[in-house]
Design a protein around this nucleic acid. Structure first.
Length: 230
DNA sequence: GCGACAG
DNA sequence: ATCTTGTCGC
């Protein structure tokens, strides 16, 4: 029996120990297949949190027409929420629903952008890293706020960024000004990708807002507006 | 012991 | 994350 990628009903203490073990399996160098389809994932909640709603949007990536992106598939999956939100243990709460959404896809993406941290996590296993490990797919974490790590002030211009470092100096991500004079986003590789490559992809997928198109669209789908189904 | 704390 | 109107700005 190999260590499971996930188990339910784990006490926080055990969940943390599992994260430490799983983080050892992460690959932080590029092992990326040619990207033809990239996806954005985000989770939302309904019924005061009783229902978890996962949204995945798949975009077509064409080297010739880049950076033009077009949506080719989108899925929404709902299921009962089974874990509370505990800082540091977000993946245990969101991944089950995310997997349900991925299972409904007819096209599997070669790269996935996740709303949350990659390795910029206390035990280096943010939701993007955990999901990447599970799907064995390259993932990038794009968070709207900081969970851990220190960083200097970021320049005000779009594209400016500074490293996010953990105690000891290890670089675990980047604080990126994705829009001029707008609050920066926290980018960190999840799995099978380096920080540099992660930044490259986030930058090339930026549209009119501060979030890259994949997560921006998934955000819209997962949030209680956009009256669609899945 | 006292804060900090993705979504 | 979610609860929520109007309002400021391009």
């Amino acid at each position: 029996m190999s260590t499971p990628l996930h188990e339910w009903n784990l006490a926080p203490r055990d969940a943390m120990a599992l994260q430490t073990e799983l983080a050892k399996r992460l690959e932080l160098s590029d092992r990326l297949d040619p990207v033809r389809h990239l996806a954005g994932v985000d989770i939302g909640f309904e019924d005061g949190g009783a229902t978890t709603r996962a949204a995945v949007v798949v975009l077509k990536w064409d080297p010739d027409t880049a950076p033009d992106l077009s949506v080719i598939e989108q899925v929404v999956h709902r299921e009962p929420t089974r874990m509370p939100y505990i800082p540091g243990l977000l993946s245990f709460r969101e991944i089950p629903a995310a997997l349900g959404a991925f299972a409904k896809l007819t096209v599997q993406p070669e790269l996935v952008m996740v709303d949350g941290q990659g390795v910029a996590h206390p035990r280096r296993l943010g939701v993007a890293a955990h999901l990447g490990l599970w799907l064995d797919t390259p993932t990038i974490g794009i968070a709207k706020s900081r969970l851990t790590g220190r960083h200097a002030e970021v320049g005000e211009q779009r594209g400016d960024w500074v490293p996010l470092t953990a105690r000891g100096g290890e670089v675990i991500g980047a604080v990126l000004r994705s829009r001029t004079r707008v609050k920066p986003v926290f980018v960190s590789p999840g799995h099978r990708l380096s920080l540099d490559t992660s930044l490259q992809w986030v930058l090339r997928c930026l549209g009119a807002t501060k979030l890259p198109e994949p997560t921006r669209l998934a955000d819209r789908l997962a949030s209680r507006r956009d009256q669609r189904r899945g």
